[in-house]
Design a protein around this nucleic acid. Sequence first.
DNA 1: CAAATCAATGCAAACGTGTGCGCACTTTCT
DNA 2: AGAAAGTGCGCACACGTTTGCATTGATTTG
Lengths: 342, 342
Amino acid sequence: MTQEDGAAARPRRVTVVTLSKLAGVAPSTITRALKGDPRISPKTREKISALAKEYGYTPNALARTLSSGRSGLYGIVLGPESNPLYSHILHAAMDEAESIGCRLLMLHIGMEQMDEKTAEALLQYQVDGCLITSAAIGSRAADICRENNVPLVMVNRVAERHGSFVSCDNRAGAGLLAKHLLQTGRRKFAVIRPPQTSSTARDRENGFTEVLADAGIAGVMRLNYASGWDEGYAAGGVLAGMLEGEQPDAVFALSDILAMGVIDGLRAAGIRVPQDIAVVGFDGLPESQRPTYQLTTVEQPIRMMINRAFKLLEARTKDYFLPDEQVSLGGRLLIGKSSQLT
Amino acid sequence: MTQEDGAAARPRRVTVVTLSKLAGVAPSTITRALKGDPRISPKTREKISALAKEYGYTPNALARTLSSGRSGLYGIVLGPESNPLYSHILHAAMDEAESIGCRLLMLHIGMEQMDEKTAEALLQYQVDGCLITSAAIGSRAADICRENNVPLVMVNRVAERHGSFVSCDNRAGAGLLAKHLLQTGRRKFAVIRPPQTSSTARDRENGFTEVLADAGIAGVMRLNYASGWDEGYAAGGVLAGMLEGEQPDAVFALSDILAMGVIDGLRAAGIRVPQDIAVVGFDGLPESQRPTYQLTTVEQPIRMMINRAFKLLEARTKDYFLPDEQVSLGGRLLIGKSSQLT
DNA sequence: CAAATCAATGCAAACGTGTGCGCACTTTCT
DNA sequence: AGAAAGTGCGCACACGTTTGCATTGATTTG
């Protein structure tokens, strides 16, 4: 173990055994004393606490996992970096994890499907549960969790076949946007959507067009673009180049980051937002509220969504056989200058 | 262990012992066969591989850590979400981690110092090393690593007292920007910097002003603003409100996200960029290269920096007593329309 | 043909922690 | 005073994997 072949391993840290020898008690006494077991006398407990502090003892969470079966680790899968939404979700998840005393293992980021090796990490590190926050990917991760009895909660996406999830009420939120646009006099609509239909995208689109249909507006233009700023910008250019009669007077980009691109693309081509075309998005990114955008959008209650998601995970960590649960939280309509002046 | 008090633990997964019984061999044989130990006969190895596949066996990385002493886990500390740079760094780190077969444990994000609980996680989970990528925070994390023999590498920041780091050559990069601005005829300069002086900020500022000083320009205006878009926007407003004689004709914002805010702030106040004022940044964020900004900046070679950082970490995981190592990589000057019109 | 070599595998201890059970010892009750 | 109850703690095994050493049987060598 003490390999002295030039390369030296780092010294192992203080363990219960070390402490037990120092204190002249059994290792089990150390464990119990530090866990606050009432069977240990106050005197002994104090002595041990003092020693632990002095020698900088920290329990080995990995060894604990081995005997207790719970790691205190949650895996997290994020969507692509091209959408800042996931960065905000990560931040919220970190805060939440910290407040409930668990840790996050980053499993995957991006739009590509997880590969075999990444999938294995999910299992190898014995995560207590897995949080999947990507609208587009995640089916693969979900399947793996299922097959291996790892509790799973999805955020910002709806489970296709089974599984718990927490989402914003995308349908209702999109409806609010449609109503707002109708109220402000818009009549010719376009939806900019990603080419692959995720549940999130589908719900938003349907919620939007249904309200329009109820108001007697049927013909809604649909444009397929990937879901980043760049694609939104390109879409804006295309919209700007349309003939007078073709051009919509209101555009619903299915996500804020896309909407921001659309606005910039339109403006770059000389179209005024909101005077010529109103643009609305969905997510409520802080970035979309900058003075340059002031985007009208629906704010997802991210922190609450994450909070609920962890609650679901924790419950399923304790009792694996709880039934799937679906939570839908309402979004808040934020009206900015991208859809109306003052 | 099998608590049947209503809440049911999830079934444990297949282990080496399970497999060993199925295959009729010893557990150690399973381990060796799957690790490709040449002492195991091809016939046995194949049988075991088949069984492992059939029963979906995945080794328990936590148990492995216990006996081998290495967890394959690296802790990562990120800077505040207000700067997209850290999101890109995280992405690069994930890719790199995946390619060398290790995992990332998210330790901390943000600008606040790590609290006690978060610091403990670093130790409890037996990370093999720690990657600190925040310019502002991290001293605390660094100290904890030091005290507990956890190898540590900093990225995008220079170690204050000791420690390995990988950084972009901030001084030289900033010098490139200064030269470019001089060449394009700018003469009156301002630097927008964060109030707390990180090593990164200091180097960039010094590198910039030194080149100016060499060219005989001494009076450089310095404005303190926190390092997000919002603060940059505010700074832009302040610059725009200056008297004709006071106003600089070139502004160096110490980071891209800040520069983006400055540009938007200036434009909102009717100042033309680059005609009236040139704006340059530092980082090379993809966001700063959008058509609306086309920011002149110095691109940090993030992927290479992360690659080197992991190399340093890996080496120190194998031989803990390697001396500290400092790596500085050159940045690439990207000239955009924020400083000159073609 | 006995001895030495080698290949293939098993045994057992170790990593650090958690926990059921039991062992001493003290206190209380009859 | 002897039995019962209670207190404080140790023993030993379990968790799943790794690894040094021992063991077995087959093969080669002298």
